[in-house]
Design a protein around this nucleic acid. Structure first.
Lengths: 218, 218
DNA sequence: ATTTTTATAGGTACTTGTACCCAGATCGGA
DNA sequence: TCCGATCTGGGTACAAGTACCTATAAAAAT
């Protein structure tokens, strides 16, 4: 690492990840590391310390990393933003790129990759996880089953995603209707529309699909 | 830390967490740390190295930490299992306790807490994240329910076990009837009898039960 | 040898989910 | 402004699962 006097803010609600990153950064010569376990504190740390780089977890409670980045980049500071995320969510990736986020790294990537990302970003370049680039290529080629499945999943409307999420928790249409304060007929219609979009037919096909793909549904 | 010659397996699909944990463990005197980024490798590492403790992420792709724990504890090894998880999922917590998992720590907890957990587990105690200790209390207060559940599962007849196994594969009564060359009415009667024995009532209760407990059904 | 359990099969009623149909309200883009 | 997508609700029909019955033959337990 070529920049011994870097100031870096780390924001992640998982203490484990913060401490892992801090330990890794401190085995390099970087010394000024600030930690936050939520978006609000991260924002304060960034505004007060004006770090060179802020490494933000996208999925944080209350104030997400995305919102922190939005408010930070809005204020025209020199702080570069690196997003750290669990999921290969291409819609979030696109939003991040639109915002002007310089780095995008998956948590499944190694610490050394984050170091590469850090170096690239400090030198004024962009750095994107190879795994994400691969995803983008797959999406463009539209070849595999899984990618087509996720395309179909993304074709669902907000209400439909809401329904399928509750379905994956094994709730009945009546329970969903009560929870959302809508008619059971509306829920059934959404279910039927989802079946159409996903190409599902037959007995309890959607329920089975939702349970089988529960992890993929957010 | 009182145990300098511990062997520990760490399994998590997020490299960051693995490296954070490894660095933390190695600032202690523990030296033999093995890493896996998926359940299959974790299982191999455990079977080959027979570690004192395996720290498993519950949410891993393909083979989950839960399945790794299931197969490890099945084989009567001395390896203690610690679950590391993102969510305060009480159903998973209960399943983990049923299995004989010794430690249960949330990723939002600090590394020092994991160290406490490690010490407790090595000394033969259980350690549960304070955040979900309230769930443990709930569980102890109504423990008679769970023990009745497993008794009831063993009370199922051969035909009934056969049926519930096929049910956990999300097959319909008609499909099961065809597969076993019996009437669909027989299948439906068995289903109903199973519902009675397990105390299940309501919409698709048995289907949901079979899917939720698919791993426990052989 | 008699009783009990199990596996088999049927009947009937009700609930839930799937498969179509329809239509009004709202909101954003062409 | 109009069109299309979305969200909302309703109707009808059928399939599948649950709930509760009865019943017979074979196997197991007593």
């Amino acid at each position: 690492m070529l920049y011994p006097t870097l100031k870096i803010v780390i924001a992640d609600d998982h203490s484990l990840i913060r401490q892992g990153l801090r330990l890794s950064l401190e085995t390099q010569v970087t010394k000024h590391v600030f930690e936050a376990d939520n978006g609000a504190d991260a924002l304060k740390l960034i505004q007060f310390n004006k770090p060179d780089v802020a490494i933000l977890d996208v999925e944080m409670p209350v104030i997400t990393g995305y919102e922190v980045a939005l408010k930070t980049l809005e204020k025209n500071t020199d702080t570069k933003i690196i997003f750290l995320t669990m999921y290969k969510d291409d819609s979030m990736f696109n939003k991040a790129m639109d915002l002007g986020v310089k780095g995008y790294v998956l948590k499944e990537n190694t610490v050394t990759e984050i170091m590469h990302c850090l170096e690239a970003v400090i030198q004024g370049n962009q750095y994107v996880s190879p795994a994400i680039e691969e995803l983008l290529n797959k999406r463009n080629s539209k070849s595999q089953n899984d990618s087509q499945l996720s395309i179909n999943l993304e074709n669902l409307t907000v209400a439909e995603k809401n329904i399928i999420k509750l379905l994956s928790m094994m709730k009945t249409s009546q329970e969903i209707a009560d929870e959302l304060n809508i008619s059971i007929k509306t829920v059934q219609n959404h279910r039927n529309n989802i079946c159409g979009k996903l190409g599902l037919t037959g007995a309890h096909a959607l329920l089975k699909f939702a349970i089988e793909h529960a992890e993929l549904i957010q």
